[in-house]
Simulated assay, not measured.
Amino acid sequence: MTTAARYFKIGPARLFVHFCVLVIVIVWLVPTLGIFVSALRDRDQITVSGWWTAFVGSTQTVAARLGTPDQQKQEGDIYVITGNVLADQPGRSVKAFGVRVQQPSAFDAGQTADLGDGESLLVNSDGSYRYMKNAAFGADERPRRIYVAASAPPEFTLANYKTVLTSEGIGQSFINSLTVTIPATIIPILIAAFAAYALSWMEFPGRALLIALVVGLIVVPLQMSLIPLLRLYNEIGTAIGQPSKTYPGIWLAHTAFGMPLAIYLLRAYIAGLPKEIIESARVDGASDFEIFTRIVLPLSFPALASFAIFQFLWVWNDLLVAMVFLGTDKDHLVLTGALNALLGSRGGNWEILTASAFVTIIIPLLVFFSLQRYLVRGLLAGSVKGG
Rank of each mutant, 00 (worst) to 15 (best):
G249F: 00
L380P: 10
F301C: 03
T163G: 12
P228R: 11
T82S: 12
M1R: 13
V48T: 02
I250M: 11
F310S: 14
L165S: 10
G67F: 03
P274W: 00
I352Y: 05
A96S: 14
Y129Q: 11
P205Y: 07
L230M: 10
V148R: 00
L333S: 06
Q223H: 09
V148Q: 04
G206S: 05
E276C: 08
A113K: 08
E155C: 01
L353I: 08
W251E: 08
W201P: 05
L333R: 12
R346W: 05
G67C: 06
I170S: 02
G171T: 00
V99H: 10
A341R: 14
R294T: 04
W28P: 03
V101L: 11
T2I: 02
D117F: 11
S125Q: 05
T2G: 14
A268E: 12
A96T: 09
A195S: 15
S105W: 07
L353C: 03
T246V: 10
A139L: 13
G11N: 08
A355Q: 04
L365S: 04
G98V: 02
G378K: 00
D318L: 04
Y161W: 07
V62S: 08
L353P: 00
R145G: 11
Q72L: 07
T360A: 15
R267G: 10
L304C: 06
I26A: 10
Q172I: 01
N176L: 04
L122A: 12
K73V: 10
N234S: 13
G76L: 14
I263P: 08
T185W: 06
A5L: 11
N84G: 09
N234M: 10
V296M: 04
I361C: 02
A159K: 05
A136T: 13
A198I: 12
W51K: 00
G237V: 09
L213T: 14
V164H: 08
F137G: 05
I81R: 02
S58F: 01
L232F: 03
D114K: 14
A13K: 12
Y247T: 05
A239M: 10
W314S: 15
S167Q: 15
R6W: 05
